[in-house]
Design a binder for these strands. Structure first.
Lengths: 215, 215
DNA sequence: CATGTGAAGATTGTATCCAATCCTTGGAGC
DNA sequence: GCTCCAAGGATTGGATACAATCTTCACATG
C-alpha cells in the first residue's frame, strides 16, 4: 500500500472516507479540535486538508465559524451530473481516437479486476476498480486539467454513491455495460462510447437521487 | 471597498495579484518564510491560501519541497480554453433563456462601466468590469458550481492576459463585441450569444498565446 | 574524473500557545 | 412574556517554536 509522505495527505484521505461513509454527516460542523485529536494530528494539517475539500465543494467554509460538511440538494446533484456529462463527453471524444491497442488491453485488465471484486462481493474494491477503469479512459484524452475536474465531480457525490454497488443486480448490469463499452472502444466508436458512458451516469444519478430524497 | 474578514483572505488576494502581475514568476518556488514576512503575516495563513491556489492549478505542490508558481505551456493554455468553452457554452445556453429584462438592463449598466473605464484608459478597471459583465451573464444560468469552474479557468490565465486591454484597438473591438452580444441577449438568441462569447474567447487565446510564446 | 557520502544550512511540516471571534446562557428591564 | 445585553465558554484564526526533510557542497574514495 502507498504510504503517506505527509500527515496532511493521510488526513485528507481519512476525511474523504469520513464524509463518504457519512460518519461526518452533511450539514454538520467540523469541529477541528476534536476531529484533529481523533485523527491523531494537530489542527494545522487538518485545516489545510479542509481547505482542499473546500475547493472541491465537499465542505463549506464560513470565516470565524468553521467548516461544515456540504450537503447536496437535488439541484446540486443535477448540476454536478450536468457538469460531469460536459466534461466526460469531451474526455471521451478526445481520448477514444487516441487509444492504443495497449490502452484497450489495459482497460480490459482493469475490468477483470472489477469482475473479480464483484465475484467476491467486495464492494469497496468494486468501487475502486470501477473508478480506475473510467479514469484510465478519461486520461487517454491527455487533458490532465479536464481529468482533475471530472475527479472533483465524482468526489462530490462519493458520499452518496456507496449504496449502488451493494445490489448484485446492479453489479451484473455494470459488468455488462463495461464489456459493451470496451467493445465500442476497441472499434474506436466515439459516439457509442459517449452514449454508453452517459447511460452509466444515468444509472448513477438515479440511484444517488433516491438516496438524497429519503431523509 | 470590502474589508477582509480574515488575514488569509487578504493573503489570497495579494497572492493572486503577485502571480497575475508576474512578480512571482512562473516556475519559481514560493519560499514561505520570506513571502509571509513580506506580506506581514505568519506562514499559517499563507500556506492555507497556497492550498486554495493549488486547488485552482495556480501553483503546484511537491511534498517537502514546497509550492511553485505554475507556468502554462501552450498545451495547458489550449486545454484551459477548451474547458472554458465547454463550460461557458453551457452557462450561456442555460442562462440566456432565463434572463429577465432587468438582468439585461443590469448587463448594460456594466457595459457602461466598461466603456467609461476604457475612455479613461484605466486598464485594471476595464479588466475588472469586463469580468463582471461576463460573469453576470454566466450567473444567469443559476449553476453556481459551473460558474465557479469557469472562474477557475479565467484565473488560470489571468497572469498572461494583462496585456490585452492595453491596446486601444482591442478595447474598441471589445466594446463593439459587447454591444452586439447584448443585442443577442435581448433577443434571447442563444446560439448567437454562444457564438459571440466564443469569438471573445478566441481573441483572448490568441493574445495570451503570443505572450506565452515569447520567452 | 566520476561517484558516493556526510554534515551544515535552508526550507517545509507539525505541534503548541495565545488572541480574536462567535455562540450560548442567564438575567435585567420593559 | 419579550427583548436586549453582558459574561462565560467554545471555537476558530494566527504566531511562534521545534521537528522532519531536502538541498547543497565539500571531501573522500574508487
Amino acid at each position: 500500500m502507498s504510504e503517506n509522505v505527509t500527515a496532511q495527505e493521510g488526513v485528507l484521505r481519512e476525511l474523504r472516507i469520513l464524509i463518504a461513509s457519512g460518519q461526518l454527516e452533511p450539514g454538520q460542523q467540523v469541529v477541528q479540535d476534536s476531529l484533529a485529536a481523533s485523527l491523531g494530528v494537530s489542527r494545522v494539517p487538518l485545516r489545510e486538508a479542509l481547505k482542499v475539500l473546500e475547493g472541491e465543494g465537499q465542505v463549506t467554509y464560513h470565516p470565524h465559524r468553521g467548516y461544515f460538511v456540504a450537503d447536496l440538494s437535488i439541484d446540486d446533484l443535477v448540476e454536478v451530473y450536468r457538469i460531469r456529462s460536459l466534461l466526460e463527453d469531451e474526455a471521451i471524444r478526445v481520448g477514444v481516437p487516441l487509444l492504443t491497442d495497449e490502452d484497450v488491453e489495459y482497460l480490459e485488465d482493469i475490468l477483470n479486476d472489477v469482475e473479480a471484486a464483484a465475484k467476491s462481493q467486495d464492494v469497496s474494491a468494486v468501487t475502486a476498480a470501477n473508478r480506475r477503469f473510467h479514469f484510465a479512459l478519461f486520461e487517454a484524452s491527455n487533458m490532465p486539467r479536464l481529468v482533475r475536474l471530472i475527479k472533483n465531480q465524482w468526489d462530490a457525490t462519493d458520499a452518496y454513491r456507496g449504496v449502488y454497488f451493494a445490489a448484485p443486480t446492479n453489479l451484473a448490469h455494470m459488468n455488462q455495460e463495461h464489456r459493451t463499452m470496451v467493445a465500442a472502444l476497441r472499434a474506436r466508436d466515439v459516439e457509442k462510447s459517449v452514449a454508453l458512458q452517459a447511460a452509466h451516469r444515468e444509472n448513477s444519478v438515479s440511484v444517488v437521487s433516491q438516496v438524497i430524497k429519503k431523509p
